[in-house]
């Protein structure tokens, strides 16, 4: 008997269940197709403006920095200002995201733009978020050539562009959008939920930012 069959047989014996009860199978398939609505905290159930404000409040509470701009055209300028303020070289790592590509980077004459995944030598990386979760101030990132996962983790500073309109109240609402985009039961290779910059409390329970991932997480929220 293979490991698979042996384990399943043991589980079934312990549960006193046969293997091929169609009713049981149908019940779990139905539950997977339509999970019961769980407990969704009231915290994130807010009208649009208040929801965006809550995201900003909580993301800041968890040590991200948040900056709001009025349009996509303002993003490159904001990125350049951030780099200057942090005394960083004017260089960013960026994926192939079309929304990012369409921004007027050419107006930032001195800015070096490196395309593709991060190689570990980037001071700053720029990604576009799939969405945000107001309930916990969390960014939602999907992997792929548009926004390579390495940019989320290797640069010292991670700058994330987030459309205010993409902020939902809770994780379940974002997951519904993920299903819609990628197809039911299908996923990008990596779906990252990011709440603040990397940290560790492993030495004497003292929380220090910048453990292995970015030391700083800067969110540029595009209103409207």
């Amino acid at each position: 008997m293979s490991g698979r069959e042996a384990i399943l047989a043991k589980v079934r014996a312990s549960l006193s269940e046969g293997g091929n009860d169609p009713a049981r199978r149908a019940a779990i398939e139905a539950r997977m197709a339509k999970p019961p609505k769980g407990v969704i905290p009231a915290r994130g159930k807010l009208p649009d403006d208040a929801r965006v404000d809550l995201f900003e409040t909580l993301a800041s509470k968890f040590a991200a920095t948040v900056e709001r701009v009025r349009s996509h055209a303002d993003v490159p300028k904001a990125v350049a200002a951030y780099l200057r303020a942090k005394n960083l070289p004017a260089a960013i790592r960026i994926g192939a995201d079309k929304r990012l590509a369409a921004m007027p980077w050419d107006r930032q004459k001195a800015m070096e733009i490196r395309n593709g995944p991060s190689d570990g030598d980037d001071e700053a990386g720029v990604s576009h978020a799939f969405g945000g979760i107001a309930e916990t101030g969390t960014l939602v990132m999907t992997s792929g050539k548009d926004n390579p996962s390495t940019i989320n983790f290797l640069p010292e500073h991670h700058i994330v562009v987030l459309e205010a309109a993409d902020i939902d109240g809770d994780m379940e609402s974002v997951l519904a959008k993920v299903r819609k985009k990628f197809g039911k039961g299908r996923m990008p290779r990596t779906l990252n939920f990011i709440t603040g910059p990397s940290r560790s409390g492993d030495i004497e329970q003292k929380i220090i930012l910048g453990a292995h991932g970015p030391r700083a997480l800067h969110i540029i929220m595009v209103d409207g």
Binding site: T136, G137, M187, T190, L191, N192, F193, T195, G196, S198
Partner: peptide, 13 residues
């Protein structure tokens, strides 16, 4: 914490 910093969902290669 309300959420840990990184919650990562990995699916396949």
């Amino acid at each position: 914490q309300d959420m840990s910093v990184y919650t990562t969902v990995s699916t396949g290669p």
